[in-house]
């Protein structure tokens, strides 16, 4: 049993001062414990299986399980199943989406909005990340990054509400413009795609900033200096060195922000209006009414997930080919 723990033989002198054995010593000389450990670690293979069993079971049942169950329900005609009713396999839920263009509008709107908002977030945070990574001393970097992290610990709902106060008809922006006599009547920012965009960019900026910052921070400054010595202008240096070498950060930041943006529910409800209904609201609608709409909701959620994964996958492929093209 203890053939693989040969080093234990070196523990011999322990017997002399058994009284001073620590908790760990007592534990490791306790027979039941040694039996269990001996059995569990008898071979590297068994040790690995014991280590891997629980995580594997967890990810399969808890991470993958809900997604698979949602997929299964999306192919049924009734869920939750009422007693006495038989559940049938059907494609109707998917046909309902493709057959009725009324659902296409929120669907494509969500994907378009998510794409546009992701791009805005990128444009907004890239200079900030660039400044932090390239122009600030190491010590201040952490402090200045921390300063930006603070608002992001505040919840989604509270930050959405803050945007409502900022953009309302009697909100800060309108009052400021009025005070500057730029406008007479308040501009109706609220309940438009604009207010929704401001809110979503506000909520997701950090998820873009951090990958960009870590990509820029890894980039050796000497590359830029060498290019400058060779006569490259600031713009050329940015276009030929900084941008291509931070494509990885851009790609992961955009993927993250895009996926998060497609999943917002409360923010579009609070900041958007009837003309900006997103697919999340459509999906949620099937869960607020009678239970027999659940399969449709599941099918719609599946469609959206597949579309979002497909788009981000295509985007990453594009970024990868761009990256390879530049190093060749």
């Amino acid at each position: 049993m203890s053939d693989d723990v040969a080093p234990r033989a070196g523990r011999g002198p322990d017997t002399a001062d058994r009284k001073r054995l620590t908790f760990w010593g007592t534990l490791s000389s306790w027979t039941p414990y040694r039996l269990v450990v001996g059995l569990a670690t008898a071979s590297p293979r068994r040790q690995f299986l014991i280590l891997a069993a629980f995580p594997l079971l967890w990810v399969l049942t808890q991470h993958l399980g809900p997604m698979l169950q949602m997929l299964r329900v999306s192919f049924t005609d009734a869920y939750p199943v009422a007693p006495g009713v038989e559940q049938h396999f059907t494609l109707d839920n998917y046909a309902r989406f493709f057959g009725d263009y009324i659902f296409w509008q929120p669907f494509f709107r969500t994907l378009t909005f998510a794409g546009v908002f992701t791009f805005c977030t990128l444009i907004l945070t890239y200079p900030v990340a660039y400044f932090l990574a390239r122009h600030v001393s190491r010590k201040n970097q952490m402090l200045m990054l921390l300063l930006l992290l603070i608002p992001f610990w505040v919840g989604e709902i509270v930050r959405t509400y803050a945007i409502m106060i900022l953009l309302g008809n009697t909100g800060a922006v309108n009052q400021l413009l009025k005070w500057l006599s730029l406008i007479d009547r308040p501009i109706p920012f609220m309940y438009t795609s604009f207010s929704m965009g401001v809110g979503i960019v506000y909520l997701t900026a950090l998820y873009m900033l951090l990958p960009l910052y870590s990509a820029l921070e890894k980039l050796p400054r000497s590359y830029n200096e060498a290019a400058a010595d060779l006569g490259a202008s600031a713009w050329t240096r940015f276009r030929r060195i900084t941008l291509p070498l931070t494509l990885e950060g851009i790609s992961s930041g955009c993927t993250l922000v895009f996926l998060i943006s497609t999943g917002f529910y409360a923010t579009p409800v609070l900041l958007g209006g009837p003309s900006t209904t997103v697919f999340a609201e459509t999906i949620a609608g099937f869960f607020h009414v009678a239970g027999d709409e659940w399969p449709t909701g599941a099918a719609f959620a599946t469609i959206m997930f597949v579309a979002a994964i497909f788009l981000t996958g295509a985007f990453q492929k594009l970024m990868n080919s761009l990256r390879k093209g530049d190093t060749n």
């Binding site: 809900p66 997604m67 329900v73 998060i260 869960f287 659940w294 599941a298 959620a301 997930f305």
Partner: peptide
């Protein structure tokens, strides 16, 4: 998994 989809999947599960 985007928020709303994760919520729906958890609810069904």
């Amino acid at each position: 998994v985007p928020g709303i989809i994760s919520a729906i999947a958890f609810r069904i599960y």
